[in-house]
Design a binder for these strands. Structure first.
Length: 279
DNA sequence: AAGGTAACCTGACTGC
DNA sequence: TGCAGTCAGGTTACCT
């Protein structure tokens, strides 16, 4: 389900909900295995009695700061994390964290998502537990000040991997998933097959701008509406109509109106592009 | 050592 | 109607 914009929308919704400032009263888990952890009441038991202080995002991970622990949630492909007044009978619900008023509910049909606890050291109050982040979250935050065109160009130096799968590795910039990688490359007119290190500095700077714009626009629109995305209040996103090439194989290119958009597979993932506009 | 591949799991959709 | 096959927003361990 979620790329960075969707996760950001969820985080903002949770932060604006009634849950921050409240204490955990009870926890419940389905007992089923998630990506790494098992969704069980035992695993979340340390949270009982702790107050939720704030909610943050790094890459596609959600960090919930409690008094003495971080709860780090990854939504995988199909996860949802909602702040509710009453428990909702959502299929594939795996975790419920009840507060004095309302609850946090995690559901995930495919269980590629995850929810793990990390201790909050007294000396590291403000530091996120970066050990919770994998190899795909090492790069720069795309909307942060350190993600500059110069840094982006430098990161691509000498990279022979095709730029589309390279973008998705998170080596340079985090949070650009399968949809927005295709969209950004289309906007910049860069072939997804071109080696990252062989795109000119000028065009990399252009791509840098498109990545920031597309992600920011998607956040503004409330996240993608693809499939089953829901924000922290359970509402759908409104960005789906804005996909110009994703899932549009066979349609006329919206830019040149001559070529037919194509679907290819790179690193086991679908890529959509215009063979005429993107070089 | 970078880059491709299989795997995790369920549901929706297509075609026969 | 049903069954088999394919595909899906992510990540990572394991190959070459």
């Amino acid at each position: 389900m979620p790329e960075l914009p969707e996760v950001e929308v969820v985080v903002r919704g949770l932060a604006a909900s009634r849950l921050p400032g409240q204490r955990v009263q009870t926890v419940w888990g389905s007992g089923l295995a998630l990506r790494h952890a098992t969704a069980s009441a035992e695993a979340l038991a340390p949270l009982v009695g702790q107050r939720l202080q704030r909610v943050e995002r790094r890459a596609k991970s959600i960090f919930l700061a409690f008094d003495r622990h971080w709860l780090v949630v990854h939504l995988g492909m199909t996860g949802t994390l909602q702040a509710l007044d009453q428990p909702a009978p959502l299929p594939h619900t795996h975790l419920r964290i009840h507060f004095g008023q309302g609850l946090l509910q995690f559901a995930d049909p495919r269980r590629f998502g995850d929810a793990r606890l990390y201790p909050r050291g007294p000396g590291a109050e403000e530091a996120l537990p970066t050990e919770a982040l994998g190899a795909s979250a090492r790069g720069m935050e795309p909307l942060s000040e350190d993600f500059t065109p110069e840094a982006f160009i430098a990161a691509a130096q000498g990279v022979r991997q095709a730029i589309k799968p390279w973008l998705m590795t998170g080596q340079a910039v985090v949070g650009v998933g399968n949809i927005y990688a295709s969209e950004a490359l289309f906007a910049a007119g860069i072939s997804p097959l071109r080696a990252a290190g062989r795109v000119s500095a000028q065009r990399m700077a252009d791509l840098h701008g498109h990545i920031r714009r597309i992600l920011a626009d998607a956040i503004e629109a409330g996240g993608s509406t693809l499939r089953d995305f829901r924000d922290a209040q359970g509402a759908e996103g409104r960005y789906g109509g804005a996909h110009r090439v994703y899932d549009q194989a066979g349609a006329a290119c919206p830019r040149c109106m001559q070529a037919t958009l194509r679907r290819i597979v790179q690193a086991q993932r679908s890529t959509f592009y215009c063979p005429r506009c993107q070089r």
